[in-house]
């Protein structure tokens, strides 16, 4: 076997590795995660509202979302009259793929990351905003007035909150001097004099991430009292499920990114006894991520929906100036410290 043949063989191994990794990540994070989150959301909302929640399918209702998925698979698929069929079908797929692509740069434990891109957080900002294209496309392609308005509102909301989100990422990049998610985790805990800047960035990030995930108090795109179901009004079960998959996948991914940037990623307050650094890292990482998810669900079931003008005011007139100033403060802290 010559050098060319060896390179070919290496490429085939690498390619196989990519495909298997993609399938594993898709199954466990982009599908398994959302299935679990939907159940968690229903259980937590029931708990907050003093109800029982899903109870009958499996022990304590833990198989409810699996049963729901099986039901969704048997439902007829309808494309509305004069809709744009290609875009109508592509939109939910794009949203689901965007949620998968987020996971490439999330470090779970030391050395456990799909690919440590040197532009990590810029990449995350880029692919997570693909969701808005999917939602806008779906709303437009449906040939339904509610869908169109829901899609447009969603686009206005998501692009508005992308700016403060981007500035929060920039603050972290300035403080750590890198865009790689692995090196950002290694740079934590941050020195104490960075705290003012980090805390402001974390709060802005959390608010903006809630808005990006279209969750209460920012769930205007699908405000059911005004817009039926917003951009997915016309979507029949399985395609609707892909949108849900993308939405909960994005929620889980932004919680994971919050953990990575602000909560120390895989680093725990103490090492778990008797397990290696990899298991230890994963346990702490997942604990923190799900704590963030729980916080977002708690917010959703506690607050009312805001109005769209209030929502855009918060982004453009409060979060954006604050985060721009915060970036300068971070720069001063880096240069002085």
């Amino acid at each position: 076997m010559g050098l060319g043949g060896l390179l070919d063989a290496l490429w085939q191994v690498e390619f196989l590795r990519m495909v298997v990794l993609a399938a594993v990540v898709f199954t466990f994070l982009a599908v398994g995660g959302p299935l679990f989150l939907v159940l968690a959301e229903r259980k937590i909302s029931a708990w907050i509202q003093a109800r029982v929640g899903p109870k009958h399918v499996g022990p304590h209702g833990i198989l409810q979302t699996v049963a729901d998925t099986v039901k969704l698979l048997q439902k007829e698929s309808i494309v509305p009259h004069r809709a744009d069929v290609v875009l109508f079908t592509a939109a939910p797929v794009l949203v689901a793929v965007a949620a998968l692509l987020d996971w490439i740069v999330i470090p779970f434990a030391p050395g456990v990351i799909v690919r440590d891109l040197n532009v990590g957080i810029l990449y995350f900002a880029a692919v997570s905003s693909l969701t808005v294209i999917g939602i806008l496309t779906g709303g437009w392609a449906s040939n339904n007035k509610y869908s169109l308005l829901g899609g447009l509102r969603s686009a206005a909301q998501m692009v508005s909150y992308e700016l403060p989100l981007g500035f929060s990422l920039l603050v972290v990049a300035t403080l750590t001097g890198t865009l790689s998610t692995v090196r950002i985790v290694e740079a934590q805990p941050y020195p104490a004099h960075f705290y003012p800047s980090v805390i402001v960035a974390a709060v802005v990030f959390l608010i903006a991430a809630t808005a990006e995930a279209n969750r209460i108090p920012f769930d205007l795109p699908e405000a059911e009292a005004e817009l039926v179901a917003g951009y997915f009004s016309e979507y029949t079960p399985m395609r609707f499920a892909l949108f849900q998959l993308g939405e909960y996948g994005a929620l889980l991914a932004s919680s994971a990114l919050f953990t990575t940037l602000f909560l120390g990623g895989w680093k725990g307050p103490f090492a778990l006894p008797g397990v290696g650094p990899v298991v230890d890292g994963m346990v702490w990482f997942l604990l923190k991520t799900y704590a963030v998810v729980f916080f977002l669900m708690w917010v959703r079931w506690t607050y009312p929906r805001s109005r769209i003008d209030q929502l855009l005011n918060v982004s453009w007139k409060i979060l954006l100036p604050v985060s721009m100033a915060n970036l300068l403060v971070a720069g001063v802290l880096v240069v002085l410290g």
Binding site: L21, A22, A23, L101, I104, R115
Partner: peptide
């Protein structure tokens, strides 16, 4: 290449 393969497999 990883990003491209992830996008394809995901789709």
């Amino acid at each position: 290449a990883y990003v491209a393969v992830f996008a394809l497999v995901g789709a």
